[in-house]
Amino acid sequence: MKQLIEYLVKALVDAPEQVDVVEVPGDEATTFEVRVAPDDLGKVIGKQGRIANALRTVAKAAAMKEKKKVYVEIVA
């Protein structure tokens, strides 16, 4: 899952080497904290959060395989 999110985020940004995805396990859900270069924030969030929501939709669907709940947070 982490690899999948990392791949998508790296493909979206201009500075893939500055992408960092941290998996934070929780009792009920796993959170993926996504960090990118400041100039790339707009690219992973998108207009009205469209891209961030697309990332969440994909992560949620893929996590269904493990019957897990996931959150994707873009950390500024």
Binding site: I51, A54, V58, A61, M64
Partner: peptide, 24 residues
Amino acid sequence: ADSRWLIGKAGQALDALQTMASLI
């Protein structure tokens, strides 16, 4: 075997991937 996990509810995950691919 796991490709179905990319579909999502009513194809939403597939559409989301398509949106991102088109953008990239």
